[in-house]
Design a protein around this nucleic acid. Structure first.
Lengths: 136, 136
DNA sequence: CTGGATCCCACATGATACTG
DNA sequence: CAGTATCATGTGGGATCCAG
């Protein structure tokens, strides 16, 4: 590598032509990607985008999620300011979750990716079939 | 499962209002999400969007990636039809990788997510700081 | 009803050695 | 140069029990 004084030329960035891309594992894009790329976050965001929901309601709706992961997921989303958590001081406890304005904008942005997927899924399936056939 | 009134208890989909979301672990969106959400794919796509690159070139440019993971990542992207692999019959071997038209459109779509992240990173950082402060 | 605390495992990724 | 094969490991996520 380069000199010992400075860690790296661009401090964990790689520069290609005029294009710069952050390769740090904790870069901003990476953090959001880890969030929407995990197993449940996107699903929770999509559901909360339709309306405010309670904990158990989410758990029942999202088929297969464990209590633990729903809690963990919601905590992460809350920490990122994407979801708001409202505790009603009643017995039994009632907690409402809903998307924040920030969360709404994220979901809107992700929609373009969903649309892309729906548009090109057949191409991908075809590419996979071709690849798998060729390698057999 | 089907006790009484239950109507197809989300065999693989959950329906909320007029909104339907596929909760299957192997749904189309999930597959693409797993791809762009993994550790290296998006980085490879971004680099190849700038220009065609060789294996070693990618390895040198992407700081921290192992040979194995670069190979695995490229194979997956190739299988999905996002990246094309060209072997030149020379010695020593030379293999060029480049984005397919499909891969280019995916990268373009992802850009909006990157832009969103850059736009809202400060809000997220603030939300996290607030959350962490409150929970201490 | 909400969700914290533990235990545990599968799997994605890393490290290393070998090869056409 | 461009991989493949093998072994090691950190962690995401499931199952379960407990608590306010």
């Amino acid at each position: 590598m380069e000199e010992g004084t400075s860690k790296e030329p661009s401090d964990s960035c790689c520069t290609v032509d005029a294009f710069q891309w952050d390769t740090r594992e904790d870069c901003d894009v990476r953090q959001i990607l880890d969030r929407i790329g995990d197993k449940w976050s996107l699903l929770v965001i999509a559901l909360l985008d339709t309306r405010c929901m309670r904990f158990t309601e989410l758990k029942k709706t999202i088929d297969g999620i464990s209590q633990r992961m729903l809690t963990v997921t919601l905590r992460q989303l809350e920490r990122d300011g994407l979801v708001s958590r409202t505790v009603h001081p009643v017995v039994p406890p009632r907690v409402d979750y809903e998307l924040t304005p920030l969360g709404v904008t994220l979901h809107a942005t992700i929609q373009s990716l969903v649309t892309w997927t729906e548009t090109h899924q057949s191409e991908i399936a075809a590419a996979r079939a071709k690849y798998d056939a060729a390698s057999s």
